[in-house]
Design a protein around this nucleic acid. Sequence first.
DNA 1: GCTGTCCCATAACCTGACGTTATGGATCCG
DNA 2: CGGATCCATAACGTCAGGTTATGGGACAGC
Lengths: 317, 317
Amino acid sequence: MDPKRVLIFRTVARAGSISGAARELGWTQPAVSQHLRALERSAGCALLLRGAAGVELTEPGRVLLARADALAVQLHMAEEELADLTALRRGRVRLAAYPSAAATLVPRAVAGLRARHPEVDVELTEAEPPEALALISRGDADLALVFSYDPPHGAVGEGRSARADHASAGTPERRDQVAAGGAGLVWRPLADEPVALVVGADHRAATRRRLTLADLSEEPWIVGCERCRAHALSVCAEAGFEPAVRHVSDDYVVVQNLVAVGLGVTLLPRSALDAFLHPGVRVREHPSFGTRTFGVVHREGADLVPATAALVRELAA
Amino acid sequence: MDPKRVLIFRTVARAGSISGAARELGWTQPAVSQHLRALERSAGCALLLRGAAGVELTEPGRVLLARADALAVQLHMAEEELADLTALRRGRVRLAAYPSAAATLVPRAVAGLRARHPEVDVELTEAEPPEALALISRGDADLALVFSYDPPHGAVGEGRSARADHASAGTPERRDQVAAGGAGLVWRPLADEPVALVVGADHRAATRRRLTLADLSEEPWIVGCERCRAHALSVCAEAGFEPAVRHVSDDYVVVQNLVAVGLGVTLLPRSALDAFLHPGVRVREHPSFGTRTFGVVHREGADLVPATAALVRELAA
DNA sequence: GCTGTCCCATAACCTGACGTTATGGATCCG
DNA sequence: CGGATCCATAACGTCAGGTTATGGGACAGC
């Protein structure tokens, strides 16, 4: 049974005549008549009695009208619900974010989204980038905040496929990041942030005027995740030494506490320091310490989901 | 929003891929792909994420799928209900019948219908033919049992429009009968029945061997409704006299009681006598007493309603 | 009784929607 | 690396779906 014809039938029943329904639909009367005939053939019985005064429903017609009404209700509610989603009167985004972004960027973005679109919910899962990508690929998250440490000259176009980007950028970290979650993903960088050197408040490097990394070649080093370790090794190698890694922790609060009591020095991105700054450390910045790019990853096409697109806009602001 | 496309979308969601849905629908994959694209343009957002492993719903897609499921349920139930009505597993006929038919023909027909199709209901309203036709025209009855007294040569085709039939038959009673309810009605004669003379058990005419109507020219007469009176006047005129009408009653039980106590003679159709035969009367039959045709009237097209058609078949059996 | 106005039905016609085939690209597995 | 799966787009042919043309019935007003 053709649902369009059922709805045409309903228009006729409500108009009381085929001609009246044709006027309402903006069609000619034979068009409606032909559809009704086809519907009656399909139904196998008369749905309407026709006459000079218009139509009257038969009992099968009354039965079908009840169902046609219910059909129209479902269709109308579908249209309304999609309109609500499109206009951001409703929606939900499942976001996976690494800790320092979860502590800084995400609250600001979610607050902005909440201010503009209070009916849109964001569900946050804290996850390091590889796990965040896995969530995206499995369909358990809509959007992932990820980062990659940049070589000094790295710059990538936004909105291009992950494969194209990492091919053009060529960095091992970037390939590792987006390939781990499988293909069909889109990576959109949002901004760069500097990586800073973090030393104890009493450390001789805390106040040294012309500080270079090489000055710290004999210090014990504290590093974080796999990517952060790789970055530290990379920038130290450019400074001509291999750092002695004594401590490892992903947790930037823990890392800063270790630095404060003199157990070593570390490199941390700006966002981690924005999230938490231990009073017993000092932060030194220099271009040679490097930068990292953070951005979002999502399934191709997910940016056409209104709530996801809105959150991306807030994160990019 | 095109309900057909919503159902196509539902097929894709359930199949897990556009190609799988195409196989299920018996179409090629681009056909399904194009319909989905059109649906997404109409919806104004992405409903699906596409990939090498098939599709995954977005949140708008999940919302729409719920409505699509409800749509499919309504459509399926409509199909089932119409199938039940077509197969006479369900149904209702509103029948208007004159008293002697209500007492004889109708119970037999309804019993037969009940035996064959126990789920079909008949709702009976007792009504003389003019009122029965009015009920049909107002849409308050589906079928009417009516009769007309025949001239000796009257014979009509079945299933033709009422106007055509009464034009061909030409009898005043018939015109009165079907015209009174307006046009768009179809009259279908079912059978002829003889009209009989009814006299008291002790009446001299009860046992007279070679009885003619002229023998009763001096008797007091008892007549019924307008049409029955006209018939009596007609056949007596053919016998060469005008009957002295002393009593009038539509009720064939009353009429027979009056005859039994000697208050007059009357003409009654066979069905009235089948319904009730007073032990104090005698029935004489002769072609000169005339016949009457009984049949059904309904709105044009109503015979394509399965329950109505079934009842007509039972009435005609 | 005639005319005008409403109703519905059918035939013939034209157009574009809707399916196809052809083709290309992406992903994944062996 | 090749084969098998997925999806997308372009081009094409057919016929469904709307139109116009026309005819007939019913009814109200004159």
